[in-house]
Simulated scan of single mutants.
Amino acid sequence: MMKGDDSQEVEIDLGDSSDNEDFDNGEEPHTLWKAPLALEEEENIHTTTMVEISDTKPLINVRDPRGINDCLKVTFEDVIAEPVSVRSGDRVWIWSNALFEVSRVWIYRIVTVLLAIPMSIISGLLFAILSCFHIWMVGPCIQCILIGTRWLQSLWSVVLGVIVRPFLTSAGRCYGGFSIHLAKE
């Protein structure tokens, strides 16, 4: 995948106080943490026919198209928040934020590697068995019952049309003549 020329990276400097020195050799300072691309920047990513397989460049861009897991969009600020009255040092806050994000991402990846394939196999097996059971057992049984009780359906529609419908229609007309007026005294 290739990025367009107009995309920008947001960098957060986590360096110590010694990072304020100027670099004589013209190199940029090494940043320990980079923020992810914004949604607008992800849409500007152009793909070629030769797609590189990498952890940072997913093959499937939209992995939750129906928003099933919107409740799991958790950021550091959703979990930890300091009020104005009590605050830790800026470096503690920045490093805590970075460690939270890195540990959240990597622990998720490790657990996914351990559980994703077995859970996919179990889920696929379960849905295959349920589909087969529904297609070859439940569906035909329901159709047999519907065919066998077709006379009962027609009898029930006659009973509803001849007895119940006129009774409810006349009751509705009788009670429809009543009106209630509220007055303040």
Rank of each mutant, 00 (worst) to 15 (best):
L39W: 02
V79A: 15
T56K: 13
D70Q: 09
E42S: 10
V62A: 10
E40V: 05
I80Y: 06
E77I: 04
I60R: 11
H46M: 10
F76W: 04
R63H: 03
R66W: 01
H46T: 13
A81L: 07
D78K: 06
S54R: 06
R66I: 02
L39H: 02
R66V: 00
C71I: 03
I68W: 00
T47K: 09
R66F: 01
V51F: 08
I80H: 08
N44M: 15
D78C: 14
M50P: 02
P36D: 05
N44V: 06
I68D: 05
D70E: 01
I80W: 01
E41W: 04
E52C: 09
T48A: 12
T48C: 12
I60W: 01
P65W: 00
G67C: 05
D55H: 13
E41I: 01
L37Q: 03
E41F: 01
E82I: 00
T49D: 08
N44C: 08
A81T: 06
N69E: 09
E41D: 14
I60N: 12
E82N: 12
I68H: 05
E42Y: 01
N69F: 00
S54F: 02
L39Q: 06
D70C: 08
P65K: 11
L59T: 13
R66T: 04
A35I: 03
T48Q: 10
I80A: 15
E41N: 11
D70P: 00
L59N: 11
K73R: 14
I53C: 12
I45D: 00
V74G: 12
